[in-house]
Amino acid sequence: MSDVLLEFDNVSVRYAGAIAALHGVSLKVHKGEIVALLGANGAGKTTLLKAASNLLPAERGQITGGHILFRGRDVTGSSPHDHIRKGLVPVLEGRRLFRSLTIEENLITGAVGRGLRRAAIADGLEQVYTLFPRLRDRRLSVAGLTSGGEQQMAAIGRGLMARPDLFVLDEPSMGLAPLVVAEIFDALTRLNTETGLTILVAEQNSSVALRHAHHATVIENGRSTLSGRASDLAARDDIKASYLGGHAA
């Protein structure tokens, strides 16, 4: 097995000192993999991903137990900025573009967050526009006025501008038409195979996620309940029914 890039070791999280959101979740992401994080609404997927980038304090959340290791180093207390410098880049749930900025300006903020200079910014833009040609046409449009699919592409592009080694995506399919979802996951798969980008993606749309992922972990009520090869999980109908809100739900 290839080496571990990101590891959650028995991580627990509380919000505002009272509400426990995660109870000892462990999870490993190996270099070069796509790992899907599955589970119902409110299971704790978003919390886990925010913990990885240390974004919880801004929402009055706190890691109360366990460690998060990135490339073997403990990064539990590093700032979001430091995470990005090291190559761990998040793409937030709900896109969260800067609505009054243009698409291109949004993309540039990703590079600025990593501290990149002019030439690197131009390279990054070219890479993103090659991956998502639609963004090139919309580059001067105000982000708030573009379609959901374009916004998701721009959010992913903004992340790519920071030159990630590990991409942490939260619910990229949210509110998008199936064709657009397929387009986005195809792009992620292409990034994974062509550039070796490691991806951890949380999804409620488990069928799409399992089709593209190598491994998957299911979390339920703040605990990781199941973990395995994506193809094995996809084959088991009972899992779909009980954990993934499949046919039975």
């Binding site: 980038s53 974004l55 801004a58 929402e59 979001p80 900025h81 995470h83 990005i84 410098r85 880049v89 998040p90 937030l92 969260r96 573009l97 800067f98 609505r99 009054s100 900025l101 300006e105 540039i108 903020t109 990703g110 600025v112 967050g113 990593r114 903004r158 920071a162």
Partner: peptide
């Protein structure tokens, strides 16, 4: 300027600005 761009980003969405790595 880049600082100006960062300022407008923060003004739009502080949380997203932090997640993007803006200080």
């Amino acid at each position: 300027t880049r600082t100006g761009l960062s300022f407008r980003a923060v003004a739009d969405d502080t949380f997203a600005a932090m997640a993007v790595g803006l200080r």
